[in-house]
Simulated scan of single mutants.
Amino acid sequence: MARFFSTIFLLLALAFVAEVSGSTNGDFYRPAGAEGSVPIQECPQKCDYRCSATKHREPCLKYCNICCQKCLCVPSGTYGHKEECPCYNNMKNSDGKSKCP
Results as ranks from 00 to 15, higher is better:
Met1Asn: 12
Arg3Met: 14
Phe4Met: 13
Phe4Arg: 15
Thr7Ile: 10
Thr7Phe: 05
Thr7Asn: 12
Ile8Arg: 11
Ile8His: 04
Phe9Gly: 13
Leu10Arg: 05
Leu10Gln: 09
Leu11Thr: 00
Leu11Gln: 07
Leu12Thr: 02
Leu12Pro: 01
Leu12Arg: 01
Ala13Asn: 09
Ala13Gly: 10
Ala13Tyr: 01
Leu14Gly: 13
Ala15Tyr: 05
Ala15Asp: 04
Ala15Arg: 12
Phe16Gly: 12
Phe16Pro: 08
Val17Pro: 05
Ala18Leu: 09
Ala18Glu: 07
Ala18Cys: 09
Ala18Ile: 08
Ala18Phe: 06
Glu19Lys: 15
Glu19Arg: 15
Val20Lys: 14
Val20Ile: 10
Ser21Leu: 12
Gly22Glu: 06
Gly22Asn: 11
Ser23Asn: 14
Ser23Phe: 01
Thr24Trp: 07
Gly26Lys: 09
Asp27Ala: 14
Asp27Ile: 06
Asp27Asn: 13
Phe28Arg: 15
Phe28Glu: 13
Tyr29Met: 09
Tyr29Asn: 14
Tyr29Phe: 03
Arg30Lys: 15
Arg30Asn: 07
Ala32Ile: 11
Glu35Asp: 09
Glu35Leu: 10
Glu35Cys: 12
Gly36Lys: 07
Gly36Pro: 05
Gly36Tyr: 00
Ser37Leu: 02
Val38Cys: 10
Val38Met: 08
Pro39Tyr: 01
Pro39Glu: 09
Ile40Val: 14
Ile40Pro: 14
Gln41Val: 05
Gln41Trp: 06
Gln41Cys: 04
Glu42Pro: 00
Pro44Lys: 15
Pro44Glu: 05
Gln45Asp: 14
Gln45Phe: 03
Cys47Met: 14
Cys47Gln: 10
Asp48Gly: 13
Asp48Tyr: 03
Asp48Leu: 10
Tyr49Gly: 11
Arg50Lys: 11
Cys51Pro: 03
Cys51Thr: 07
Cys51Trp: 02
Cys51Arg: 08
Ser52Asn: 14
Ala53Tyr: 01
Ala53Thr: 12
Lys55Ile: 05
Lys55Trp: 05
His56Phe: 11
His56Val: 08
His56Glu: 14
Glu58Leu: 13
Pro59His: 09
Pro59Phe: 03
Cys60Asp: 03
Leu61Pro: 01
Lys62Ile: 09
Tyr63Pro: 00
Tyr63Met: 13
Tyr63Lys: 14
Tyr63Val: 04
Cys64Gln: 06
Cys64Trp: 02
Asn65Lys: 15
Ile66Ser: 15
Cys67Ile: 07
Cys67Leu: 13
Cys68Pro: 01
Lys70His: 12
Cys71Tyr: 00
Cys71Glu: 03
Cys71Leu: 02
Cys73Gly: 03
Cys73Phe: 02
Val74Gly: 01
Pro75Glu: 04
Ser76Cys: 11
Thr78Val: 03
Tyr79Cys: 03
Tyr79Leu: 06
Tyr79Lys: 13
Gly80Ile: 00
His81Glu: 11
Glu83Ser: 09
Glu83Cys: 07
Pro86Cys: 06
Pro86Leu: 09
Cys87Tyr: 02
Cys87Glu: 02
Cys87Pro: 03
Asn90Lys: 07
Met91Arg: 10
Met91Thr: 01
Asn93Cys: 05
Asn93Val: 06
Ser94Ala: 08
Ser94Arg: 10
Asp95Leu: 08
Asp95Phe: 02
Gly96Leu: 03
Gly96Arg: 01
Ser98Gln: 08
Lys99Trp: 03
Lys99Met: 10
Cys100Ile: 00
Pro101Arg: 06
